[in-house]
């Protein structure tokens, strides 16, 4: 390759800000502080295997999976309608989907607090119509709601992107060969949209499984997720070693799920964001 020197600044950047921090996390993750100094130890991994932590891990994964599925169920039809030929104001709609992402993530999540509060907006409206109160704040449902609300665009956009690039003549060809709209969807549109679905799932699942803001705000203190645990270790407990161990475990989990998703996507396809 010619002009290798052009890569040098990027290489330096990557070493300083990616490789070195990663190495530090690994270093902290596999060591412990003893009275006689730093020592190699896997005791933090053992500690993570305790039921209390495993329960947190399981809850994180469970909530992330549920949110991802809900995002997919809501997002797929939206993406399909947006990408459809008949939809005239698609640019406005796509814009409206993206605009909330320009607003601060914390603010967006915080807003749900006031909406969901016992005397919040939703409950006062429900009350006016004599309907039962909605008390989901500080429950799993609220956390899932927050995740779906925040991450839904990440599901819609990649699917929309793949679908709007889809060759319309493929759909016509399928109809021409005798397929009604159900078969067209099942045998042509859905398989061809899979790269977008895979991207969407990855892009929703990853932030959902590591979030700590949503669970802290909407789950109260009661729904500790793995993200909160790591945050606590670093910010409040000061046990960087255990925090790093948990980060490593999360990285491995995400890596495995990504490999799994890539496999599902098949080797030849492209068009998604990954």
């Amino acid at each position: 390759m010619k002009r290798n020197w052009a890569l040098t600044p990027y290489l330096i950047w990557m070493i300083i800000f990616i490789v070195v921090p990663l190495a530090l996390v690994v270093y902290y993750g596999i060591t412990v502080n003893t009275d006689s100094g730093v020592a190699f130890s896997l005791s933090n991994f053992k500690r993570f295997a305790e039921p209390i932590y495993l329960r947190v891990l399981w809850r994180s994964i469970k909530l992330a999976i549920i949110s991802t599925i809900i995002c997919l169920i809501i997002g797929y039809p939206v993406a399909m309608i947006l990408a459809g030929n008949s939809f005239k104001h698609k640019n406005v709609m796509v814009m409206l989907l993206v605009v909330p992402m320009w607003m601060n993530f914390l603010l967006r999540t915080y807003a749900w607090l006031t909406l969901l509060e016992k005397n919040g907006i939703i409950n006062s409206i429900l009350g006016k119509f004599g309907l039962p109160m909605l008390n989901i704040l500080y429950t799993e449902s609220a956390v899932i709601l927050g995740m779906v609300y925040n991450f839904l665009p990440f599901m819609i956009l990649p699917i929309y992107s793949v679908m709007s690039k889809m060759d319309y003549s493929l759909i016509e060809a399928a109809e021409d060969l005798g397929a009604n709209s159900l078969i067209v969807f099942r045998r042509v549109i859905f398989p061809l949209s899979l790269p977008g679905v895979v991207s969407g799932i990855t892009m929703v699942f990853m932030p959902a499984v590591t979030t700590f803001v949503i669970s802290r705000l909407l789950g109260g203190g009661q729904f500790t997720l793995i993200g909160n645990l790591i945050e606590q270790q670093f910010l409040y407990v000061g046990d960087w070693n255990f925090g790093s161990t948990m980060s490593l475990i999360m990285m491995v989990i995400i890596l495995i799920s990504m490999l799994f998703m890539n496999k599902a996507d098949g080797p030849e396809r492209s068009g998604g964001l990954w």
Partner: peptide, 30 residues
Amino acid sequence: LPPYKRRVNTVFQRYALFPHMDVYENIAFG
């Protein structure tokens, strides 16, 4: 009548073969 109920078939300008299927499955589609 919608296209799928007509006894005509079309060869499209850009062929419109299904990229997610092999040759056999493309021909077997109908």
